[in-house]
């Protein structure tokens, strides 16, 4: 994902802007990372350079929770505990 995309990216649910970007791996583009809506605490993964800005009903817990676990050292505590639609509070 090119960082410039953040200039127009909004939360698909509440349309909040600006969103927060957390970069985990970057080459020419952001390869893996996390986009967070500070208003509703929804988080969206960036995988294989593509930001996945899906609404809750299209998210897959079995794919998203391992992503959170993989990068938990770099993800803000608030998202790990209260992030939507999935979080690691129970773990």
């Amino acid at each position: 994902m090119k960082r410039k995309l953040m200039e127009i990216l909004a939360c698909p649910i509440d349309k909040h802007h600006p969103l927060e970007l957390h970069v985990f791996e970057e080459k020419e583009e952001v390869v893996e990372g996390l986009i967070v809506c500070p208003k509703c605490l929804r988080w969206y993964p960036i995988r294989d350079e593509i930001p996945e800005m899906l609404p809750d009903e299209l998210r897959k817990e079995r794919e998203d929770l391992p992503f959170l676990k993989k990068w938990k050292e770099k993800i803000p505590e608030k998202i790990l505990r209260e992030g939507k639609p999935f979080n690691l509070k129970k773990e």
């Binding site: 994902m1 090119k2 995309l5 127009i8 939360c11 698909p12 593509i50 609404p55 299209l58």
Partner: peptide, 19 residues
């Protein structure tokens, strides 16, 4: 070539107004 790509649902677009 370069372009910006996003995975999203066309009923809930992840873009700001008027852009």
């Amino acid at each position: 070539l370069k372009a910006f790509l996003v995975k999203c649902d066309m009923k809930a677009l992840p873009f700001i107004d008027n852009c």
